[in-house]
């Protein structure tokens, strides 16, 4: 059983479109959408939820107004600006450190487990998908990502699936690290722009740090062939193989609008290129 994560550094380069295409193309796998902040893979895979779980992490402070003696000690000690002048807790600023609860002379503050999201196991036309939704303003620590990755791995083992395919989050922070650790390969999907190159470099550094091989796909490559070559050259110089290139094609948007993956869309050229990219990726892993 092998695991692949699709990353980009910069958002909007085509991770989810690529993951959707692999979902359609690859046999015998489990999908995981690890972009728990703004999950989109379900728009292509139309999952039917089979299991729903609450996700709790960290704590939030709560002031019992009847017990509160309005001394303001909590406001004095809070370093996150989470206690308002009127001595209420601003939930979106509270980081759950618990200091206010410990200093309150009236024991009027309790720390409560924070329900910050949910995660799901679903069935799609391409197999099982594990996904999640993180609540608004919550800390994206990577813990929810780790949770759904663990579940996906368990499902893959029990059902003898060959692949776990992970739609990764943007950026390079903790959620990205949680989606990338222990995988067999990273598929880096980027676009031919300054931002794309800049942020791809940071993903490559992360791959080196975690000792995971990285393969590159430049999406919409013909928007700027010169920058495409620059990115491919940078990658080759840094031990990253070029798995393929996808041209800009309205067929992609059309497929997304219809809730379909590229492999179910109208462009034969794109389909052929995705097949080549997958062959390259598979070859590199084995």
């Amino acid at each position: 059983m092998k695991q692949i994560v699709v990353l980009s550094g910069k958002g909007g380069t085509g991770k989810t479109v690529m993951t959707g295409a692999l979902a359609a193309l690859v046999d015998n796998k489990v999908m995981v959408d690890c972009d728990v902040d703004a999950a989109d893979l379900h728009l292509l895979l139309t999952p039917k939820v089979v299991e729903r779980h609450e996700f709790k992490s960290g704590k939030k402070a709560r002031i019992d107004e009847r017990a509160c003696v309005r001394c303001g000690r909590c406001l004095e000690v809070c370093r996150f600006g989470a206690v308002t002048k009127k001595l209420f807790i601003d939930m979106s600023s509270c980081e759950g450190c618990g200091l206010c609860a410990r200093v309150c002379p009236a024991a009027a503050i309790t720390m409560e487990e924070n329900l910050c999201g949910e995660w799901f196991v679903s069935e799609t036309r391409f197999g099982t998908m594990v996904h999640a939704r993180l609540g608004i303003g919550e800390e994206n620590s990577g813990k929810l990502v780790a949770q759904i990755r663990q579940k996906a791995k368990e499902i893959a083992k029990e059902a003898f699936r060959d692949w776990v395919i992970i739609d990764g989050p943007p950026g390079i922070g903790c959620p990205v690290m949680a989606s990338l650790s222990g995988v067999d390969a990273v598929l880096l999907v980027t676009e031919p722009s300054c931002s794309g190159l800049h942020d791809a470099g940071r993903v490559i550094d992360l791959g080196k740090h975690f000792k995971v091989p990285v393969q590159l796909v430049v999406n919409k490559w013909d928007i700027n062939p010169a920058v495409t070559e620059q990115i491919e050259k940078y990658c080759t110089e840094n031990g990253v193989a070029v798995a393929g290139r996808l041209p800009f094609d309205r067929a992609v948007v059309n497929a997304v609008i219809q809730g379909r993956t590229i492999m179910e869309g109208e462009s034969l050229g794109l389909k052929a290129e995705i097949i080549k990219i997958w062959a390259h990726l598979k070859g590199a892993i084995s």
């Binding site: 695991q3 990577g142 780790a146 990755r149 663990q150 996906a152 791995k153 903790c174 690290m177 949680a178 650790s181 222990g182 740090h209 975690f210 000792k211």
Partner: peptide, 9 residues
């Protein structure tokens, strides 16, 4: 080993 390497390996 890098920090957090063990997540879902």
């Amino acid at each position: 080993s890098a920090s957090k390497s063990g997540i879902a390996s």
